[in-house]
């Protein structure tokens, strides 16, 4: 699906032939150090940027949903308005869908709050709700929980699995723990210019116990793959 992506910004070579594939319904984590071009890969998949070389191939026509690293909400719109914006962009203006999504991500009662009045975790929920509102075939998530505190982060991870169940997700992170907890498959990227170092399958039953032996085993495996030069 993603094949031989290369991308440079001026003289800075960011991607040096990144290839991996994502199956329908699969949760794939891209993991790598900061600045390794993870976000660039996601933006290329979303069509926000073009690769210098390589291509992204889809089996069907897809409609992506995107969750940004910062929550990226429109400050002048309420929770309701922000989610509705995504629908309006599609030409649908269905308040019922918005209300259902708000309910689904646990934001009931906060419809009329502005982003500024919400906590970081809540704002990220709105970001996820907005991405889900368009009923995406592919959900692209760029370190959505990076700025949250540890407890909120774990809770959001648990909820995310419930929310995106059955959906195809590409999730960028630099947290090994997060990748092992969420992913069906982890694509380990090298330092810049990045290449795929290894692809690790995680076949532990969800929800996963972060302290189980299998979990720790996978964590070690990714850790050593990341250190591999």
């Amino acid at each position: 699906m993603v094949e031989g992506l290369r991308k440079s910004y001026g003289n800075l070579k960011v991607l040096d032939g990144v290839t991996f594939s994502v199956e329908k319904g699969e949760f794939v984590c891209l993991i790598g150090e900061s600045g390794c071009g993870k976000t660039t890969i996601l933006k290329i998949i979303a069509g926000l940027e073009r690769p210098d070389e390589g291509r992204v191939e889809f089996k069907d026509v897809i409609r992506p949903g995107f969750v940004f690293q910062d929550d990226r909400l429109l400050p002048w719109k309420t929770v309701y308005g922000n989610i509705l914006f995504a629908l309006k962009a599609m030409g649908i203006e269905d308040g019922e869908v918005v209300r259902r999504i708000i309910d689904f991500v646990g934001l009931k009662g906060f419809e009329n709050y502005y982003p500024k009045q919400l906590s970081g975790g809540m704002r990220q929920r709105v970001g996820i709700a907005r991405a889900l509102a368009v009923n995406p075939d592919l959900l692209l998530m760029d370190e959505p929980f990076a700025s949250l505190d540890a407890r909120t982060r774990e809770r959001m991870q648990e909820e995310l699995l419930r929310i995106v169940e059955g959906k195809t997700v590409v999730f960028v992170t630099h947290s090994i723990d997060e990748a092992v907890y969420l992913a069906d498959r982890v694509v380990v990227l090298s330092r810049r210019p990045s290449k795929v170092v290894r692809i690790i399958e995680i076949e532990i039953e969800k929800p996963r116990d972060r302290n189980s032996e299998d979990f720790i085993e996978k964590r070690k495996e990714i850790y050593s793959a990341l250190r591999f030069k």
Binding site: A46, L48, P64, F66, F68, R72, L74, F85, A86, K88, A89, M90, R130, V134
Partner: peptide, 8 residues
Amino acid sequence: EIARVFRA
């Protein structure tokens, strides 16, 4: 960028 992502 939000606008582009959602193809507004």
